[in-house]
Computed example of a mutant assay.
Amino acid sequence: MNRFLFLVCLCLVAMTTFGQDAPGRWSAKKANDWYAKEPFLVGANYAPANAINELEMFQAESFDPATIDKELAMAESIGMNTMRVFLHDLLWQDPAGFTKRLDQFLSICAKHKIRPMLVLFDSCWDSFPKLGKQREPVPGIHNSGWVQSPGVAALTDVSQYPRLETYVKGVVGAFKNDNRILAWDVWNEPDNTNDNSYGKNGKKLEPANKVAIVTGLLPHVFQWVRVAGASQPVTSGVWVYRTPADWQNSAKWSPMEKVQFENSDIITFHQYSNPTELEKVIPALESFGRPVICTEYMARGVNSKFQSHLPIAKKAKVGMINWGFVAGKTQTFLPWDSWQNPYVNGREPAIWFHEVFKQDGTPVDPAEVAAIKQATGK
């Protein structure tokens, strides 16, 4: 089958799920029964301070259990009980080694009473991931070394899809009954085309039909996870801003959002906006009758903060996972505008954008740590 026909078939498969639960999806009752046993979930999107991306975090040469242990102890000390952690398809070129390192990571998490949500694929940032030594951070730029999974070469080459399937089934199958894992997030921001994150020249490094490709592929990824026997809930979070009325009207959803909503056992979303908007979106997403978790929030520069958002979410028992934990090589303490105007030559952001702790272990803002502790009961 040629590439065009294959992609058409993928899209047709995706379209058949619109308006109905996809095969293998948990019932709302099963999802709610699962969530009723969980505490108020609070955590961060986590990579250790000395890892620029998910490859550097988990490759044998740079995997650093000591740093992870130290930092997750800090998370435990403020009551965090989950982390959202990104994996990568290229890591499966060493299945035994990667499985061993991931098992070790999960043991460290369990030691600190943290059950992570593991992310399998991600459409954000660099389209050309490579194994081996990762580059150093670009001075003054937010998340300058993060890499997509799969990269553009694999995404646009259907002959590599069996490799992607092997990765998903392999890693999920190895941990399918592991209660140290909270959930599987199958694809982060799948329709993100990174329009704003390639610098002043706006250089485009994405395939023109990226969204169509991923829309067709995503239902298959959900099914790969289910075929692998995952006992944990499966999700992919919506992230583009919609009004509450739009969320409750399926005619307003994009084709990608339909796939996400109709395949996810639990509803996950991103919310980089003010507390009033959070108060509006929570009831809209709860109307689907399933557990709701916010898997990205907290950007001080856009009024998304611990002090304002955690009390709102706790009242509704909506889990909250902020972006960033300890400042380091990702440089996500720098704001998004650094993509166009890097913070160099002495220019500093007025406030830190993300992160809970500075690299020396002190809080960015002690009042924030107090708010987290209050929300978690620590």
Score class of each variant (00 low, 15 high):
Asn209His: 08
Asn194His: 03
Asp195Ser: 13
Lys200Glu: 12
Val186Arg: 07
Asn196Met: 09
Asn201Glu: 13
Lys203Glu: 14
Ser197Glu: 08
Thr193Asp: 11
Asp185His: 09
Ala183Trp: 00
Asn194Cys: 06
Trp187Tyr: 15
Pro190Ser: 13
Lys203Gly: 07
Asp191Ile: 06
Lys203Asn: 08
Trp187Glu: 06
Asp178Asn: 12
Val186Asp: 00
Asn188Gln: 13
Ala174Gln: 07
Asn177Arg: 15
Ala183Ile: 02
Asn177Glu: 15
Tyr198Val: 02
Asp195Phe: 14
Ala174Gly: 10
Trp187Thr: 03
Ile181Glu: 07
Glu206Ile: 09
Lys200Gln: 11
Asp185Ile: 05
Asp178Pro: 11
Val186Ala: 07
Trp184Phe: 15
Asn209Asp: 14
Lys176Thr: 01
Asp191Gln: 14
Ala174Tyr: 10
Leu205Arg: 07
Trp187Met: 12
Asp191Leu: 05
Lys176Ile: 00
Asn192Leu: 10
Ala183Asp: 04
Tyr198Gln: 05
Tyr198Phe: 11
Asn179Leu: 06
Asp178Val: 07
Leu205Val: 06
Gly202Asp: 04
Ile181Gly: 09
Lys210Gln: 14
Gly202Val: 02
Pro207Arg: 00
Arg180Ala: 09
Tyr198Asp: 07
Lys200Ser: 11
Trp184Ala: 04
Gly199Trp: 02
Asp185Val: 00
Asp178Ile: 05
Val186His: 09
Arg180Thr: 08
Ile181Phe: 07
Asn196Val: 00
Asn179Trp: 02
Asp191Asn: 14
Lys204Met: 02
Ser197Met: 04
Lys204Glu: 05
Pro190Gly: 12
Lys204Thr: 00
